[in-house]
Structure formats: structure tokens, C-alpha cells
Amino acid sequence: MESRQSLAVAEEGLGDDDVNLPRAAVNKMIKEMVPNIRVANDARELVLNCCTEFIHLLSSEANEACGKQQKKTISAEHIVEALKSLGFGGYVDEVNEVLTEHKKETKQRRKASTKLEKMGIPEEELLRQQQALFAQARLEQAQAEQEEYLKWQQAQQMMQQQQTETHEEGKSSEEATTVAAAAAATTTTTTAPPAPVPETATATASSRTDGNDDEDDYECE
């Protein structure tokens, strides 16, 4: 009970984000477990709270087991004992498998660190090389993104140019059609046949001509 009270007191000075699991990690685990099902936000929040509460309960129980053995450090054995005492004994085998895998990975990391130490490369130099590699990777990524943007921009310009040329060609074709139609109309107007003379005008002209002939005959007499 004292260990649980001490944990509660320690958490009073922390915010919700400080005592909860990372949301991104929990969301990733949910997506891996149910990839084809959409999980609502309130359900994600509930899973996050349940995981956090479970870790608090397990830590408190492991702390009590550690105190009973008069130890100052909670070990993996204390976690296993806490699982059993809380009724989660069915998870002990999986926990032991994860613990074995973790020990192997830790051993491999130590070997790699020892090799680097034997090579005589200081840790500061390794850190500098790592930062240089990160900077180079960011620069290459930026250059690749810039090239992709330029390609996209050129493609857009070519598309706009093609659209402009197509529009100009259509406009020129319409103007040529208009000029041809106007020329055809002008030619038709020029070659049109003369209008027919009314019959009344012809008769009047004939009568005038006959009258003139009579006058000529009279003068001759």
C-alpha cells in the first residue's frame, strides 16, 4: 500500500501526457492488430487509459515484491511475480520470450560498442559522423523534392503552352474561315446578272421611237 501511495504522490506533480503512454505508439499497435477496422477516437482514448492504468498497477505490485525482498531495483523477476499475483499468469511465457530476445539484442549492442572502442574511434567523432550523415540525407531529400517540383512545374508550363497553341490555331482557323466567306460573298455580288427591264419601260421607249420616225417622214414631205 505504501508503494502505491508513493506512486500516486509522485504522479500528482505530472500532467496527463507525462504519465500516459505515447499516443502514437498506442495508435500504431491498434493499427497493427486491426488493420482493416476503423477505431473511433474515443475508443483509442479508452485503450490508452486502460494501458496506462495497467502499467501503473503492475509497477505498484512489482514495487511491493521488490520491497519484500529488500531490493532497491525492480528487476524482470519482480514483474513476473507481479503478473502472477495480479492473475495474469497466462502472460508469463510471452513475457519471458520477450525478455530473452531483449537480452540478446542488448548483448549484440554491447559487442558492437566494444568493436568501435577497439577501432579507436572516439564517441564524439562517431556522433559527428552520424550528424554529418543525417545532414547529407536531409540535403539529398531536399534536392530530390526540388527536382520533383521542377519537373512538375515544367510539365504544367508545357501543358499551358499546348493549350495556348491550340487556342491560337483555332482562332486562326476561324479568322481564315471568316475571310473566305467574305471573299465569296464579294465575288457573288460582282458577278450578279443585270436586273430585268420592266415591260412598261420597253413599251414607252418603243412608242417614243415610232413617234420620232413619223416626225422624220413629215419633214421629208
Score class of each variant (00 low, 15 high):
Thr188Phe: 00
Ala201Tyr: 08
Glu2Trp: 05
Ser206Gln: 02
Thr73Asp: 06
Glu105Ser: 07
Gln153Lys: 05
Gln154Val: 07
Leu46Pro: 00
Glu169Ser: 04
Gln154Leu: 05
Glu124Arg: 09
Thr190Leu: 15
Cys50Gly: 02
Leu83Glu: 01
Ala181Glu: 14
Ala195Trp: 11
Glu124Asn: 07
Thr164His: 12
Gln161Ser: 10
Asp214Ile: 02
Val95Trp: 05
Ala182Arg: 10
Ser113Gln: 13
Ala142Ile: 13
Asn36Val: 05
Thr200Trp: 15
Thr52Ser: 11
Val26Gln: 12
Gly15Val: 11
Gln157Phe: 14
Glu61Tyr: 03
Gly87Met: 13
Ala192Met: 03
Val9Arg: 02
Gly90Ser: 11
Arg44Pro: 00
Glu11Pro: 01
Pro198Asp: 15
Pro122Gln: 13
Leu58Gly: 03
Thr100His: 10
Glu215Arg: 04
Leu99Asn: 06
Ala40Leu: 09
Ser60Asp: 13
Ser6Trp: 04
Asn20His: 15
Lys71Ile: 06
Gln154Lys: 08
Ala155Arg: 02
Met158Arg: 03
Thr191Arg: 03
Tyr218Gln: 07
Ser207Lys: 08
Glu168Cys: 07
Leu48Glu: 06
Asn212Ser: 05
Gln146Gly: 01
Gly120Pro: 02
Gly120Trp: 11
Asp93Leu: 07
Val95Asn: 01
Thr188Ser: 00
Asn27Arg: 06
Ala182Trp: 09
Gln143Val: 11
Phe134Gln: 09
Gly170Arg: 15
Glu2Cys: 02
Val179Lys: 04
Ala137Glu: 08
Lys84Met: 12
Glu125Ile: 04
Met33Ala: 07
Val197Ala: 12
Asn36Asp: 14
Ala205Gln: 11
Val92Trp: 10
Ala181His: 08
Arg109Thr: 06
Ala183Arg: 06
Ala40Gln: 14
His102Pro: 03
Leu46Ala: 11
Glu175Met: 13
Met119Trp: 14
Asn96Ile: 03
Ala201Trp: 10
Cys51Trp: 05
Leu21Ile: 09
Ile37Arg: 15
Ala184His: 03
Lys115Pro: 01
Asp213Gly: 00
Val92Gln: 14
Thr209Arg: 07
Thr191Pro: 03
Asp210Pro: 00
Thr189His: 03
Glu199Phe: 12
Met159Gln: 15
Thr164Trp: 14
His102Asn: 06
Gln146Leu: 01
Glu45Tyr: 07
Ala10His: 10
Pro193Glu: 05
Glu221Trp: 08
Val9Asp: 03
Gln163Trp: 13
Pro194Phe: 01
Gln129Cys: 03
Asn49Met: 09
Ala135Ser: 02
Glu215Ser: 06
Glu64His: 03
Lys104Trp: 04
Val197Asn: 11
Gln129Phe: 08
Glu219His: 06
Cys51Lys: 03
Pro193Phe: 14
Lys118Ile: 02
Thr106Trp: 14
Glu53Met: 08
Leu7Val: 11
Asn36Thr: 10
Gln70Cys: 02
Lys118His: 12
Thr52Arg: 11
Leu86Cys: 09
Ala24Leu: 02
Leu139Trp: 13
Glu53Ile: 06
Leu139Asp: 15
His56Ser: 12
Ser85Val: 01
Arg110Ser: 14
Glu81Tyr: 12
Asn212Arg: 08
Val34Trp: 13
Thr188Tyr: 01
Thr100Tyr: 09
Arg109Tyr: 13
Leu57Gly: 02
Ala205Glu: 10
Gly89Cys: 09
Gln141Tyr: 05
Pro196Glu: 13
Thr191Gly: 06
Pro122Trp: 09
Ala184Thr: 04
Lys71Asp: 10
Ala180Tyr: 04
Ala192Gln: 00
